[in-house]
Amino acid sequence: MTTAPTTEVHPAPDGPLVVACLRIGDLRPTVDPLDGTVTRDRLGVGLSPADAAALEHALRLAEAWSGRVVAVCVGPESVEPVLRDVAALGATVMRVPLGDEGDGHRYVGELAEDEHGLARTLVAALAPFGAPDVVLCGDRSVDRGTGALPAYLAHELGAAQALGLVVLGPVTDSAGRQALLAERRLDAGWRERLNVPLPAVCSVEGAGVRLRRASLAGALAAEGEPVPVARSLAVVAAPGPGSFHAGAPQPFRPRTRVLPAPHDDDPRLRLLTLTGALVAHEPPTVVEPADAAEAADVLLAFLARHGYLDDTRVTIPERAATEDDAP
């Protein structure tokens, strides 16, 4: 792992433009095990390792070329603290609102559903900065991203694309032009080395480089500064000729739960603990609902009563005389 240098990039106004497209969101969203509702927490908002690597690569390329870095993120206002940290590294930052502001919960789903639209939104938002020479992305977002955004971006920009990279650096090609040298993993431990002409869209794995930290002066300068917001563009991809929509990606699934083995040395005791064979139980109850709807109500009421359901989310029918009243 390379140690990150800690200096900032000082943007040269006319140098090459390196763009980092960042997907900033809750890195550890919670998923309701019963109904799959995803809850995002604004305190968990941050850069995924892949996005952090993309940003670091962008800063290094801009340094090598005396260029400037623009970092953009499509997202709600809760991403701004992270963008401010990015600004502290010397990048120009911009937030692109998408659709319904203030509703931070729906946006990620929307992004993942229409990555072509997202790519167009980004390209439109970047237009004032001029044509980018390199656009960097993380290879995939942690929250059910498909990794398709960079390809769409390359398509929209008419740029070369090199995806899933582990190594990326500037070179001069045989004709004396600036270009990129990249590596990506192949099966069986092989790697493929690519010469990428500019302009290019590259996505990188969260490996190999670590994002530098801002200097004290940089951090103080960025602190409290407002984050520029692009005017709401929300370009939606009209399904054009030759495009098709593959449908929404898979919903989140909660992780499987690892349960510890009971501690007793005696296998028989362990088995007893696991099965609860000798532990006094509340006796099971037989309920005989008349129809399926009533059965569902009884089940929901049971779950709510035992704290498994937030009863503000479910309307619970008045308590049926059920198992708690059993002798």
Partner: peptide, 8 residues
């Protein structure tokens, strides 16, 4: 910190 619905 344990999750518990407000009603409970």
């Amino acid at each position: 910190v344990l999750d518990l619905p407000p009603g409970a």
